[in-house]
Amino acid sequence: MKSLILKTVSTTLLPLLILFSVFVLLRGHYLPGGGFIGGLIAAIAFILHAFANGLDQTRKLIRIHPGFLIPVGLAIAILSALAPVIFTGDPAMTGLWYEKDIAILGKIGSALFFDTGVYLVVIGVCLTIIFTISESV
């Protein structure tokens, strides 16, 4: 499937799609989007790249093993869930919010970190599964 067009397009598309996925993640609290969708888009972006340029190229690009994202994402999610317990003494999963609005993002809170964790886990899971399978075929 290494057609030239796909190759060229995917190289350009990859950063755009990643950017888009982060955008979707960040706006998820206000508009359609969120960690799941963002993570899936990012995963698809990488997989598209892998199809066009070969798996090794993509692996080289990512550098780390995608499976590594899973524990990182889980840790972020768990920490943001536990943050209220640690910082304010509220029960776990209580939302914590930074008072002021931030440009573009709107309000920042523990929910956003949680969603980021979800985002990373989803990327990690999808890429691990697809990469593992395509390697072993």
């Binding site: 799941f36 899936l40 989803v122 899971v125 999808c126 599964i129 399978i133």
Partner: peptide
Amino acid sequence: IVISFGLQS
């Protein structure tokens, strides 16, 4: 939907 992907794979 997301879980079913995990299951299917």
